[in-house]
């Protein structure tokens, strides 16, 4: 176990930012910490890294109790903070070199690491630029380079793709995959479902400072009752017919959105066949019909009663 957090409680005066939060991270995995803005992701990371004190709980990193002067543990950790945190008065290369210098004292090794980090985030053409001359996406890449230049075994990335164009975002996500393939354990926080789904082997869903559930995305989706959604557009349908449709086997609920009806089924056989037979029997005409597997949004919705999207 690389990181173990047990019953972590953190208050900011009257706000409870973390409420008995738990987390376990295995070596070599990409763990996603998924939750809406303000749910406590950054606070959790800052507590784990001893940047914040906390009220209750236990934190272990690499099997040892984490503390501000656990320098041997810190040597293995990299953080890409949510805010772009670099010196405005230093160039791209100097920034990366400075932050590398906080870990690596050997000059030659440092030069090599800095070169590799620049290569990794593809900022070769910008090494002499000052941060304010960089676009948002490039700034984010610089931010990442500064956090991973010392080749840490455990990397925390706090929403590294916020306010980034699609191209840079893909570049960043692929880079993170690469870091993981090279052996780093990754803890990735985000409020974007797609990113968590695409990148993370395991996901912890957070809300209001609590860890709601954790597991692989398949495990998470299996946890909820809705397992299939079928969306049909009827040109004309009476309310009684809809009520009758609700009585079909495995139907949980039907939501109406204009002409579209979303029919939610729980796990079971022949859901689509049953529906099609019902349509034929009632001589209904439909313009489109498609089936959807549940998303993490459905998981979140069912767990919290609200949507995860902004």
């Amino acid at each position: 176990m690389v990181v173990k957090v047990k019953n972590l409680v953190k208050r900011y005066k009257e706000i409870i930012a973390l409420d008995h939060f738990n987390m376990e991270v295995d070596e070599g995995e990409v763990l996603g910490l998924l939750g809406p803005n303000g749910c406590g992701k950054t606070t959790a990371i800052n507590c784990i890294l001893s940047l914040l004190s906390f009220d209750k709980g236990e934190i272990e990193v690499f099997g040892k109790k984490m503390s501000p002067d656990a320098y041997d543990i810190k040597r293995q950790i990299g953080l890409v903070p949510q805010e772009v945190s670099v010196f405005g008065n230093l160039t791209v290369r100097e920034n990366i070199d400075y932050f590398c210098g906080l870990y690596i004292y050997d000059k030659n090794l440092r030069r090599r690491f800095v070169d590799e980090a620049i290569e990794f985030v593809d900022l070769k053409d910008y090494v002499k630029f000052y941060p304010k001359k960089l676009s948002g996406g490039l700034k984010r890449r610089l931010n990442i380079a500064c956090g991973i230049v010392h080749k840490p075994k455990l990397i925390f990335l706090d929403e590294p793709t916020v306010a980034v164009d699609a191209q840079s975002r893909n570049f960043i996500l692929n880079g993170i995959k690469q870091l993981n393939e090279e052996g780093s354990t990754i803890i990735y926080t985000t409020h974007y479902l797609e990113e968590a789904e695409m990148l993370c082997k395991r996901i912890i869903i957070m809300d209001n400072g609590k860890d709601l559930v954790s597991g692989t995305k398949e495990e998470l989706k299996a946890m909820i009752t809705t397992s299939e959604k079928i969306i049909v557009s009827f040109s004309e349908i009476r309310d009684e017919t809809v009520s009758e449709m609700k009585k079909l086997p495995h139907v949980i609920d039907i939501e109406k959105d204009g002409d579209d009806y979303m029919i939610k089924f729980e796990n079971g056989f022949n859901n689509l066949t049953n529906l099609l037979e019902f349509i034929k029997e009632k001589e209904l005409t439909y313009t489109k019909l498609h089936s959807q597997l549940p998303t993490l949004n459905d998981v979140f919705l069912e767990l919290t009663g609200k949507e995860l999207r902004d």
Binding site: S50, D72, K74, L102, Y103
Partner: peptide, 18 residues
């Protein structure tokens, strides 16, 4: 002031530099 800026200071704090 640059060295003491909150985010940059945090980066220093989590590093292995004493």
């Amino acid at each position: 002031a640059d060295f003491n800026e909150y985010n940059i200071e945090n980066r220093r704090k989590i590093s292995s530099k004493r």
